[in-house]
Simulated assay, not measured.
Amino acid sequence: MPVTTLDTTTALVLIDLQNAVVARPAAPYTGAEVVARAVELAGAFRGHGAPVVLVRVTARPDGSDAPQGRTEIPRPPGPLPSGWDTIVEDLAGHPGDITVTKRSWGAFYGTDLDLQLRRRGVTQVVLAGIATSIGVESTARAAHEHGYNVTPATDAMTDLNAQAHLNSVERVFPLLGETATTAEIIGLLARTRPRS
């Protein structure tokens, strides 16, 4: 269902828009395209006095604090490059933004994201970032389970695989909330009463 409204207490939550993640090949949008749309959204939310949350994933250089368990796809060998987990420059450096650091796919597990949102009275989250079917979808599912209204910005996210992106956008997200484009969200935000 296309987005119909934004709550007066909506936050923008940007997932893993950091150096190493944005630099990876992605589809259907490039990392640069996603960052450009995220910058538009963040500017609109900041201008409206609404919270902007920058979520980054990190791990120790040796990977010793990575989630445990067997997977069929091995983790990258060797140490992680310096600065890989730094938020991209186009989004960083705004003192009013909230930064959340995670060590797993979703932004809620093992972090203070829910606490940060509830302290600000947030009832709805707009989600964007990389990768659609991993970090963004995991966060959307948890946000829904925590009782937030969920609005994925479908053109401000991308995946390592275009089919995985489409599966999330067309089959999963409509079960969790209302989807929208960057332009639709910015248009609705402009018609929403600013936070006082």
Rank of each mutant, 00 (worst) to 15 (best):
I15K: 11
I134N: 13
R119I: 11
V122T: 03
L175Q: 15
T4H: 15
R75Y: 09
T58N: 06
A50S: 14
A180T: 08
R56Q: 03
A140Q: 02
E170I: 15
N161C: 10
G187N: 12
H146C: 07
A107Q: 02
A180Q: 09
T99N: 01
A107W: 00
T71N: 13
L91M: 04
R193I: 15
V57R: 13
P174I: 02
G83R: 04
G129R: 03
D85Y: 07
Q18F: 11
Q18V: 08
V126K: 08
A92D: 11
N167I: 15
E89H: 09
A153I: 01
T182V: 07
G83D: 07
A180N: 08
G106N: 08
T5R: 15
D112R: 07
G47H: 02
N149A: 15
R60L: 07
R24T: 14
F173R: 10
V35P: 00
T151K: 11
P74Y: 05
D159P: 15
F108P: 00
R120M: 01
R171D: 03
L189V: 09
D112T: 04
H165W: 07
H144M: 14
A27P: 12
T71H: 10
D16K: 05
V21Q: 11
T179C: 06
H144F: 14
V88E: 01
T99Q: 10
T71W: 09
D85W: 07
R118M: 00
L91F: 02
T8A: 15
N19K: 10
P74Q: 11
P194S: 00
G69S: 01
D159N: 12
Q124S: 09
S133M: 11
V150R: 10
R70G: 09
Q68E: 10
